[in-house]
Design a protein around this nucleic acid. Sequence first.
RNA 1: CGGGGCGUAGCUCAGCCUGGUAGAGCGCUAGCUUUGGGAGCUAGAAGCCGGAGGUUCGAAUCCUCUCGCCCCGACCA
Length: 462
Amino acid sequence: MTRTPVARGPKRPLKSAPVPLFTNRGLPMRLSRYFLPTLKETPAEAQIVSHRLMLRAGLVRQHAAGIYTWLPLGFAVLKRIEQIVREEQNRAGAQELLMPTIQSADLWRESGRYDDYGKEMLRITDRHERDLLYGPTAEEVITDVFRSNVRSYKDLPKILYHIQWKFRDEVRPRFGIMRGREFLMKDAYSFDLDTAAARRSYNQMFVSYLRTFDRLGLKAIPLRADTGPIGGDLSHEFIVLADTGESEVHCHRSLLEMSVPEGVDYEGDLQPVVDAWTGLYAAADEMHDAAQEATLGDALVTARGIEVGHIFHFGTKYSAPMGAAVAGPDGEPVTVVMGSYGIGVSRLVGAIIEASHDDNGIIWPESVAPFHVGLVNLKVSDAATSAACESLYEGLGRERVLYDDRDERAGAKFADMDLIGLPWQLIVGPKGVAKGMVELKNRATGEREDISTESALARLAG
RNA sequence: CGGGGCGUAGCUCAGCCUGGUAGAGCGCUAGCUUUGGGAGCUAGAAGCCGGAGGUUCGAAUCCUCUCGCCCCGACCA
């Protein structure tokens, strides 16, 4: 059979299609074309809720112990979280750069950590028998960059960060993505002339963490953490509250009700904010103080959570051995004081699910949801229903919409939609379409309402 | 790294004790019927039973070694 040439339409200018940074990051998408392998049953290896749901909802697949492939839907969430972290870092005055994953062992010998770090560090040898390692953190690299490029106190302060994959060869990876060996982390490093200035940097990061977790739809509690040999009170862990969290938190009730500062002036004095958040009793299980808790009475609450951030002032621990100094105002060299500030970006995906799910699946906070709305065509074979869906799909085009146009039964579609947890479901069936009505369902509350297609569009656009 | 467990179809698992050449449910493909909360029937496709060696006429099954994964503990973003 010969093919008739396809007739070409009239010449018209190329439609300027949006060019997203990541193709799965907020473009409208048809489920029939999307790579979303959902599972009805739970794979045997997954024990905790977030791991189970991440596998079932088609977010990730395990590659090896503690190492995962991010599938499109999971990758979209990861990127959204990463972007929020980035925006809040930038807002606080930190500057993004990108350091390598593979690092030279020589740098780590300078800081003395090459021998100290132990088996958690994945060591690699290249073809010239040079010792390399897959970075578990980046203090050495950033200190090296700093010392070879910054000469004067006038260049301080600086906070530099990157969002990069790390590897720690955990003895026992577990909890899916939450305790993997390979993980995505935001790590920032501050450089200051003295401890007072370092505290300002610390406070900036502290406040930006409050804002970051808040934007992610999480309730985070800062806990005073062990500072090791450095001492002082400049180290905090940020614990995100989740009923299924792995660690226990004891804290003052008021801490849970405290509101996160808005419109922060990061150049201003942040000490009052930090004081407010650190003034109330809060301790991890292993650090808690029964005597102090007794005085709290009813104000004491015990909750569960997941550590998602850790900020740390470490003075000259790396700058001294590695010779990171600048000329001070008097011309004399001053060893810079440093701090580091981590956020477990990939871990946050799991933490958010732990904090926000129900029996049917994930419930994404709006800010990180891979799509804003799931458009559910209940009867693909019905011309009117499909036409209505197409027009809604078109109308919602600038929203993040996932259109379930698969020829599946209603039940399967509802189950999948609940499982992947998009904030809104727009359900379109023949009965409603006949009356010009669709159903809008809120995933978090389960509330449904029948509304006209016009108001559905208006609601979802607003 | 100590202790325990598991590797059989894409997923969940049975079969192993007592050797005789591989099964179920779900999923997948096709057809018919269904169609608002994971449908029914029929017919299919799909597994060198994690790998290597050994015992045996014969091994998913017994023995040895090995690799992988999971759980508990110690350790960590």
